[in-house]
Nucleic acid binder design. Structure first.
Lengths: 249, 249
DNA sequence: GGGCTTGAGTGGTTTAGACCATTGCGATTA
DNA sequence: TAATCGCAATGGTCTAAACCACTCAAGCCC
């Protein structure tokens, strides 16, 4: 009872049908060129002799990899690759311009809240102290890029809520409070798009996202802000420069 | 024809059923406690009055978020949260130990290949030059953590292929070639698990992964290695420390 | 012409069900 | 006793089909 079935067993990498489909779809992607259209899902299913469900699974994966864009009601198109975003303390606006992109930022929400214990610890204020919460939608060349929620201690920056306008937040901190950023701890992980994320970023619910959390300190090592942002995982990647600690172990 | 339907329209965030299900499942997760079992998918479907497909979609999302673990043939269990990994130039082994984890590393492959033009440029060698390719499976406390593929120019490190053993690669570079790492450019993005990834990391094909690409340079700014690693997105997150450039714009 | 309606076509969500692959335990057997 | 077998339960993959939500252009009406 073990004569044929040569390629079986061995705990080797089984390849589901939807994964194999991706190779064939990538050929169509290459043929269509950037921005080009792909056939409809029903046509693909029939053409490849699989169910539409399987086609959709393959398309969803290619989308998560940034190779495709799906537009509800319209069609599926070849994606435009990922944009590299540098992890640094400099201003968002400056950074984008250096990539030749036109950055915009719209303030979705500005509210004062009482600090939860955890947040209070991060900002070095007593629990329940006033904290300014800012929620922004950042875009590049008109396309939504990230949702950013920052929180700053109002006890340290009294009146800041009235000064949040078009100018850079960091500029305001420097000019009105004499605060300059020294360093930050930035955490990166994956998440999935919530319905709110999806609505703002033109995404699908459950799409793969990159979540960045930044804890910024001034030059005196006092916490300045706590920021959490979500970026579309299919459109952005991040690069950081690491420097050697003087000791080599 | 517009009298009721109060909450409709407005392009607001529609919430699919599978997303709403997650909240109810999270309650069960909290009740079960870390490592605790959840009911089977068929039981969940019947209990919540939805199809098994919808249950699976919700479970898959919770899994991508690191809140659940599914074991084929056995059941679904509460996950154990994400481990933080620091982005730095120091040795992998050292870094893991500082987290109280017991790191191991198994060499999957060591081969000499001719550099593709792109790789040759990254390593500053002529196209077609000999390059050492090392593929390792890194684990922490016995659990597979990442697959790491590094490439080093053999023209600069002649005989390196014979010295790849149990000792740290960086130690070999220092002791035999006098090379010390100065800085690196590290890129982070999302990917999906290939069948090969899934087999090695005990994952599912198509699971969300974090891909890191590291381009390391020595203290003379000459390229030393090009590394690409994939980590399970449901189990790891990364943290980097950013320092201020002296100029504030 | 300018605005509106309508409908065909597209992707998005959900269902019910079949079958496969793996696990793990209980019963059987040597 | 110890190993093996068999089977039931679990998660994994795939199908077929229905219906919803959105887009866009053709056609209609004013």
């Amino acid at each position: 009872m073990a004569d044929n079935l040569a390629e079986n067993g061995r705990k080797s990498a089984r390849t589901p049908k939807h994964w194999a489909l991706k190779d064939r779809l990538l050929a169509m992607v290459a043929a269509a060129g950037p921005g080009g259209p792909l056939p409809g899902e029903r046509a693909l299913a029939e053409g490849f002799g699989v169910s539409r469900t399987t086609v959709r699974k393959a398309l969803t994966e290619l989308m998560a990899e940034g190779r495709l864009t799906r537009v509800h009601g319209s069609g599926t198109y070849v994606g435009s690759g990922k944009v590299t975003q540098r992890l640094q303390l400099s201003s968002y606006t400056e950074d984008m311009r250096s990539h030749g992109l036109n950055p915009t930022s719209s303030l979705l929400e500005a509210a004062i809240e009482a600090a939860e214990p955890e947040l209070a610890a991060l900002l070095a204020v007593p629990a329940g102290a006033d904290v300014l919460r800012l929620r922004r939608l950042r875009s590049a060349d008109g396309e939504p890029m990230a949702i950013e929620t920052s929180r700053l201690p109002l006890t340290r920056f009294p009146g800041l809520e009235a000064r949040v306008g078009d100018t850079s937040l960091y500029r305001v901190l420097w000019e009105h409070y004499g605060v300059e950023l020294g360093h930050a701890e930035e955490t990166i992980e994956t998440t999935l798009a919530t319905p709110a994320d999806a609505a703002l970023l033109g995404n699908e619910v459950g799409a793969v996202m990159l979540r960045l959390s930044r804890h910024s300190f001034d030059t005196d090592n006092r916490p300045v802000e706590w920021v959490r942002s979500v970026y579309r995982g299919d459109r952005y990647k991040f690069v950081a420069t690491l420097v050697s600690p003087r000791e080599v172990e």
